[in-house]
């Protein structure tokens, strides 16, 4: 075992997969030998594998994803990087209309084994164009798989699975998670898609969280535990496919669900999770499902305002107590 950061774990996953399979190559802005990625995920990879396999591109997200989709269709296994998740909008046609649909449009004769890596998340005071969490859009697009790792351990295991998957995978990372650390096994491991992880067991309230919100929920759990309240934190790890059973089992046990999402509330992933639980576990609920999310606004540049909109551990503590009293 060794302790690695989330960034180091992703780097290790890319390196291992590139060593394992020659068809795996990386494509993106500033990922090559001169800058090694905006968040250093591709550190050392161009030096090790050459610029043929770690390709810098012009500043055109549509071009990056379009080229990657074409490469995937012709037998390569590209891993594209979009520097900020907010910029996925520039490649949206390639993602939603091409990558997601090709397998269907060609009657299953073509596959698109593509991974698009991109970081989400606020908290670094980098304003409305660099701070969003847009995973709900992609969860809403049939044909895409969506991974949302919250820890270094999950990030490594899920990225390796994503690269080996024959379908297009939106592999989302989180800027604040990048510096978090996990113990990583020396030996190779993969984490299958569609298996949620219970990050902490508890009996009173189920807390559904992803990314940075998992870390906030863990902090909240310690505070709540001192008050005698035990929360169970369910991290889905992939939104598509979604491990409904783990979520439902937890709610059946606790009878209460708090959803914490770093996205605006309206039509966020929490709305879908709440709907699933009320459809399939209504008879086990002890109180109404509660969501903690951002207000329906762009993420503010001002650190004071930004802190105000992002759910934190205190908001979760309050949310759990409200839920127990509502």
């Amino acid at each position: 075992m060794k302790e690695l950061t989330y960034v180091e774990a992703l780097n290790e996953a890319l390196r291992e997969e590139m060593m394992r399979d020659e068809r795996v190559f990386l494509i993106g802005e500033d990922i090559g030998p001169y800058w090694e990625g905006a968040f250093k995920v591709t550190k050392g990879l161009a030096k090790q594998f050459g610029v043929e396999r770690v390709r810098d591109t012009p500043i055109s997200e549509a071009c990056i994803v379009g080229a990657a989709v074409g490469a995937a269709m012709t037998g390569m296994r590209p891993v594209a990087e979009i520097m900020f998740g907010d910029l996925l909008t520039l490649a949206m046609d390639q993602i939603a209309n091409q990558a997601a649909k090709i397998h269907y449009m060609f009657g299953g004769q073509l596959k698109v084994p593509l991974v698009i890596r991109s970081p989400f998340g606020a908290g670094k005071s980098i304003a409305a164009h660099h701070s969003q969490s847009l995973e709900a859009w992609f969860m809403h697009t049939p044909g895409l798989k969506v991974a949302v790792p919250s820890t270094a351990y999950d990030a490594k295991g899920l990225l390796k699975t994503a690269i080996r998957d024959d379908d297009p995978v939106m592999f989302f990372e989180h800027k604040l998670c990048y510096t978090t650390k996990s113990m990583i096994p020396e030996e190779e491991y993969l984490i299958p898609f569609g298996e949620a992880d219970v990050k902490r067991e508890g009996s009173d309230v189920t807390v559904f969280a992803t990314f940075w919100m998992v870390h906030q929920a863990l902090k909240a759990a310690d505070k709540l535990s001192k008050k005698g309240i035990e929360i169970e934190i369910v991290d889905p790890r992939t939104l598509v496919p979604l491990d409904k059973e783990t979520i439902l089992d937890s709610v059946r046990k606790t009878g209460r669900l708090l959803i914490v999402e770093e996205d605006c509330k309206t039509c966020g992933i929490g709305a879908e999770i709440a709907a699933i639980v009320s459809e399939e576990a209504f008879d086990y609920l002890e109180s109404p499902i509660k969501r903690i999310a951002e207000p329906d606004t762009p993420i503010p540049f001002s650190p004071v305002l930004e802190n105000y909109v992002i759910p934190n551990d205190e908001a979760i503590v309050k949310g759990v107590i409200d839920l127990l009293e509502s």
């Binding site: 009878g255 209504f282 008879d283 086990y284 609920l285 002890e286 109180s287």
Partner: peptide, 9 residues
Amino acid sequence: VRASPVARR
């Protein structure tokens, strides 16, 4: 009667 869904079930 006010009762939670699980109590009703």
